[in-house]
């Protein structure tokens, strides 16, 4: 059971990271409702495990990693749902795509969208992105290169 001091910490942690985690989630998931779930679950995880961190960067990286994992879970389940024979699945509300390039990002396959969001939008380094996604740095670079090609093609076509 969390202590009051821990709850206070959670309060501060939320204020520090919630917007960032929500931005990452909504950009990856393209759904505000799912993004809320992902962020909420990440903070639940934080609350339950009360992890200790070396510094704020460590804390940030942990939260991003957990949140991205939540997003991956949700994306995977969405795929499970995709083959189910129900035509009336409620459409997930996509966030506003304010610009063509945001549309291009939204159109990327999941694994490419993740790296673009973290690297290009959150301005995380390749190393940080690799750590958050638990993939190699070379994989991040490869996905970024491929993602940029796809975005370029998308923007050319539209």
């Amino acid at each position: 059971m969390p202590t009051d001091s821990h709850m206070h910490t959670l309060d501060q942690v939320y204020d520090t990271y919630a917007d960032m985690l929500y931005r990452v989630s909504v950009s990856i998931l393209q759904s505000g409702d799912d993004a809320e779930d992902a962020v909420q679950n990440a903070f639940c995880r934080y609350l339950e495990h009360a992890p200790s961190f070396q510094d704020t960067e460590h804390e940030k990286a942990w939260l991003i990693r957990v949140t991205v994992n939540q997003c991956k879970d949700l994306l995977r389940r969405r795929k499970i749902r995709a083959w189910l024979p129900f035509e009336e699945l409620p459409e997930m509300a996509a966030p506003d795509t304010a610009s063509p390039v945001m549309e291009a990002i939204a159109a990327l396959p999941d694994k490419y969208r993740e790296v673009v969001v973290l690297h290009h939008l959150e301005e995380m380094s390749v190393r940080e992105t690799a750590a958050a996604l638990t993939i190699s740095e070379s994989a991040v670079k490869m996905r970024l290169t491929r993602a940029r090609e796809m975005m370029r093609a998308y923007l050319t076509e539209t």
């Binding site: 917007d19 929500y22 962020v39 945001m102 290009h120 939008l121």
Partner: peptide
């Protein structure tokens, strides 16, 4: 384009 997209991206709040 990505730089400009960052502006709208930063406006997303929980």
């Amino acid at each position: 384009l990505l730089d400009s997209a960052k502006e709208s991206y930063r406006k997303i709040h929980a």
